[in-house]
Write a protein that binds this DNA or RNA. Structure first.
Lengths: 145, 145
DNA sequence: GCCACTTGCATAGCACGCTATTCAAGCCGT
DNA sequence: ACGGCTTGAATAGCGTGCTATGCAAGTGGC
């Protein structure tokens, strides 16, 4: 039996994620955003003034990755880093007005991508699919390689 | 209404793909393989002597991406490129013995990752989940951004 | 037969992921 | 108060994805 990629959850997850990233990138590029920046903004819109470490934990990415993303966001005028009031090692990350103004259009673009993607499934299968995605993701995250 | 990432198919697909990539990378690193190289091998194990363009089409990645992956694979002694017999622009990609020997252990590692991941779902939900993944992927691939 | 379009690859530049390393600052037990 | 572990962040190096270019070789129409 050869390995059938069209039935491999891992292969399909990779392919699907690339497709989502392409669609999302196209949707938010006009706003001057890249996908990873949008993810970081998602957290910052909920709660401003997080530290880099907190962002890492919430998005489950490595610290070095987040440092790069935040660097690009600062360069692009989306965030400002300020000294942490209580810990001189840490910095807090704050949204600029420009970033705050992007919340509505950016989340709208993301919602549109999700809607168009899920349209491929019969309505009754959408919620179970997303639930399964969530379930597997949480499990794999718990017991990392 | 704020955007809930834990219910966003796109967000979850990205997260899941990163987790799969980490698990797979850990599983095949001892073989000297990286995830994208494994994907290319998957096609070459089925049919040796493909051109770069054919590999791109089958894996749905851009030509420039494949050029990079094949370059690393040639560097690592996994493939050889030969002149195409009929088209002087093209090259055909051929497996080395080393790459051929990796088929069994590498596919086994990938299968193990899939199995462990799907173990998070009740048995009855696994097939529908993979089917949905496949369905959405195919649809999104058809009508690209 | 020639010029224009297409096609196969390489390359450069950038975004993101990861690991590994380094450094400063906080924390702790003795 | 000290020496040692932990923690927050930057940096370097690498793999993988993308777009955009550039060039050589094939193809077609006239």
């Amino acid at each position: 039996m050869t390995f059938d990629k069209t039935r491999s959850a891992g292969y399909l997850a990779n392919h699907l994620a690339r497709l989502f990233a392409q669609h999302l990138a196209a949707g938010i590029a006009p706003l001057g955003l890249a996908p990873a920046q949008f993810m970081a903004l998602l957290e910052l819109w909920r709660e401003d003034g997080l530290t880099q470490a907190e962002l890492c934990a919430r998005l489950d990415v490595e610290q070095a990755t987040m440092a790069g993303t935040l660097g690009r966001m600062a360069r692009d005028g989306l965030i400002e880093r300020r000294a942490h009031p209580a810990d001189r090692r840490a910095q807090t990350v704050h949204l600029t007005d420009r970033a705050r103004a992007l919340e509505a259009p950016a989340t709208e673009a993301a919602r549109a991508v999700n809607a168009r993607a899920l349209a491929a499934l019969p309505e009754a299968e959408r919620a179970p699919f997303v639930a399964s995605l969530h379930r597997i993701t949480e499990e794999m995250r718990r017991r990392k390689p």
